[in-house]
Design a protein around this nucleic acid. Sequence first.
DNA 1: GTCTATATGGCGATAGAC
DNA 2: GTCTATCGCCATATAGAC
Lengths: 215, 215
Amino acid sequence: MNNSDVARKPRRRSVNREAIEQRILASAEEVFAEQGFSGGSIEAIADRAGLSKQNMLYYFPSKESLYQRVLKDILGIWIEKMALIEQAGDTPAVMIENYIRGKLALSYTRPHGSKVFASEVISGAGHLQGYIENDLLPQLEADVALVNSWIDQGLMDQVEPKHLFFTIWATTQTYADFSAQISLALGKDQLDEDDFVQAGDFLIHVLLKGMGLVP
Amino acid sequence: MNNSDVARKPRRRSVNREAIEQRILASAEEVFAEQGFSGGSIEAIADRAGLSKQNMLYYFPSKESLYQRVLKDILGIWIEKMALIEQAGDTPAVMIENYIRGKLALSYTRPHGSKVFASEVISGAGHLQGYIENDLLPQLEADVALVNSWIDQGLMDQVEPKHLFFTIWATTQTYADFSAQISLALGKDQLDEDDFVQAGDFLIHVLLKGMGLVP
DNA sequence: GTCTATATGGCGATAGAC
DNA sequence: GTCTATCGCCATATAGAC
């Protein structure tokens, strides 16, 4: 019937479109990570995605819109993993450990996204118009409130919670953002999963003990 | 006499030249920090330095050479402050504290240099040809050896010294590199000296205690 | 949706007068 | 050392055929 025809065709098309858009976004994340926003040309992105640049502009009408989309996607994943999740029976120490391991896992699986975000913040976050205030900061405030309640209950040392989160962000993201420097210091071509496990072990030992969450 | 003439004139010229070069380098550090290497145009740098771009190219013959010079200068200051200096009577805790406060002071006084360096490493450090291996890593190895001697003497916990330095670098530089995000989180227009003091207090408490250098 | 062709602008760098 | 003028390249984006 006519009904099924008009319903099916657009659905097939949008599935293809979705796959191509994802390929473009993956390429864009890599190119913007390696060259920055200005340095990453849409031709380089299109090449890596296997399209002509003109064809790519059919899917993302401008470099700016593509970049915005890359930023929005990575920040979304970021915030999703940012909440200190209270599960039944979890102690503060376990929750902080999970948070650190979760952020390290993101640095391992999405290093290019981390780099794009870092470059953008370094340049002043001008393309992140309101995202930080509207999406990231509310989640930070919730996490800060939880840590403050731990402090009030005498479960840990009196430290400034915001600086704690700045520290966790910086130390976990550095293994993605500064991998060129860190892999040189470790004498490796690139960081592998084992390096991230060791980083996690170090960070959890020092931060949990340093906050007074473990003896 | 002829002798004093030929000696004086070049000296005067080179003093002027030195001053102009410093003005250009300061502008370049700001522009590259805000726009990255590709995004920062030599015209923007020249404008901020009060020169025409053609005239600026008389002092630095190419954008590349100017960028290299900015990188080299900031890395030099970096390494100079990087050594764990043993002074008579200093305990390991005091030496680490000085190191952290010193790196934080650099983030406060040279935030643009820190950002240029960070952007460069994020993009793969392709313009840092050998600098990291030849200049930074030897100093790191010396510092690592000293920390290992502390561990051998039972003065602190058994942690991996390299990860300790990655952590100190990341946590101190983040207050320069990510100042856009951090100042938003702290609800301020920009970070002031007091914010850096608080960051230092937090880091010294958590890191010294976390390493077992203080109870 | 994909292609060829092209408009348009910006930027790094050079030439040459003064 | 500084200026005017300009070359040549590359990148974003658009027009229009198929």
